[in-house]
Each structure stands twice: as structure tokens, then as C-alpha cells.
Amino acid sequence: MSPLYGRLFMLIILASTWQGIAWFVNSSDFPSLFIVMESFIYHFFQGELLVNLSVTLTRVLISFTIAMILGVFIGIVMGTSKRINQLSDTLLIIALNIPALVTILLCYIWFGLVESAAILAVVINKIPTVVVMIREGARVVDNDLLNVAKVYKLSLSKTFFKVFLPQLYPYIMASARAGLSLIWKIVLVVELLGRSDGVGFALNTLFQFFDIAGILAYTFAFISIVLVIENLIFRPLDKLIARGVHHDSA
């Protein structure tokens, strides 16, 4: 079975299990796939689903980008400098363990119920986990290869982009993957608590009407988008990064 068929097969099993349970339970609290699809089509053509999705995705994208750039930067600094690492290690552990909800509430209280406060809250939640992964990568960077760069007097930017950074790519990819799923979950909470648009806000509204099919329709929409991102962006990137690294010796 090719990997694509394998994945489709798993999806079909998941869908039929769902459908089977729905028939068995036969309750409005556990809507069947058809009702969810109906709801999806309804919200889709109403228009507000697309709007909310795009609003949430924009927030995810912005906070993801900021968190990755800052996290990679801080991680590299902490991984390469022992002194800075010692100084900021405790800070990092504190940052890792502050509940997401606390940062969100504090950001809203301090900066008001504004867009920037929402983004900031997400970024603060995400940065520490990126830092932890990148720091590990930067710690085990191959000094022998850096010495090659030194001997051949490579410029600083060449050394960084062609010798240093490629060694971190697997770590960056791993934190990006983990990051995307974490961020979109946090974004929903942020929206639920203090925004008047986005998927999180919509879910809250649907919850108040006990519209379970609607909640599942939104979830379905979002997961489809994540799957598309995984297949169109992450998998090809994986392949790009793996070039040269996984070949067997001739």
C-alpha cells in the first residue's frame, strides 16, 4: 500500500467508526457525519466560517512567525554561550511553566482587549518551547565543521547560513511542527477570552447554543487546513532538509 492510500485508509476507518458510534448512540449530542457535513456546508455558505477561519489563521501565522524567529535566536544564543545559558536558564524554566491561561489573562488585563495583546500572549506561550529545542541543537553543533569554516576564512554570514544553521534545521523543523499545533490551540483560547471574531469566538457562540454539529464542523475545517499545511509545506521541507543527510554510503 502506498503511503497516500495508507493515510486515506486510516481516515476512512476513523470516519466510519465515528458514523457507527453516532448510529448506535442515536443522540443529538453525538451528531452523525452527515449532520456535521450539513452544518459545515451551512456555515460555509453563510460566509462567517471562512471569515473566522481566515482571521484565526492570520493570528496563527503572525504569532508563529514571531515566536519562531525570536525562539530560534534566543535558543542559538543560549546554546552557544555557556554564561548566557547559566544566567537565563531559571528564567526559561519559569517561562516554560507559566500556564498559558495566566499569560493570556495578564496580557489582556495589562494591554487591554486588543489584537496586539492577543498576539503577544500567544508568542510568550510559544517562545520557551522553541528555545528549549533549538538550544539542544545549538549545543551539539559539530565543532569540526565550524573549524573548517574558520580555516578557510569564510565570512560570518556564510559560516552561519551554510555551516551552522543547517545543523539546526531538524530541530527547527521539529519545533515548527510542535509549534503550529500548540499555537493554534492557544489562539482559540485567546479568541474565546477576548476577541469578537475568529474560530475561538465562533466556537464559544456555538457552545452557548449547544450546537455540537457546528463545533465539529469548525474543528473539521481547521484540521483540514492543518493537514494541507502539513502536506504542502512541512513534508516538502522535510525532504529538502534531509538531502544529503540520509543517504547510505556508496
Partner: peptide, 24 residues
Amino acid sequence: QLGYVFQQPRLMPWLTVNENIQLV
């Protein structure tokens, strides 16, 4: 200009042979 051949080849695994030489 200095050339150094180390005990191990120390080529960048993510660069092709051409790119490895171009690098320096």
C-alpha cells in the same frame, strides 16, 4: 591562503560536492 586537509574529510553533508568546494 591556507588549505587544510583534516584527518576526517569534514565535508558539509547538506551540500553537494560542487557546493562544498564552492563554499570555500
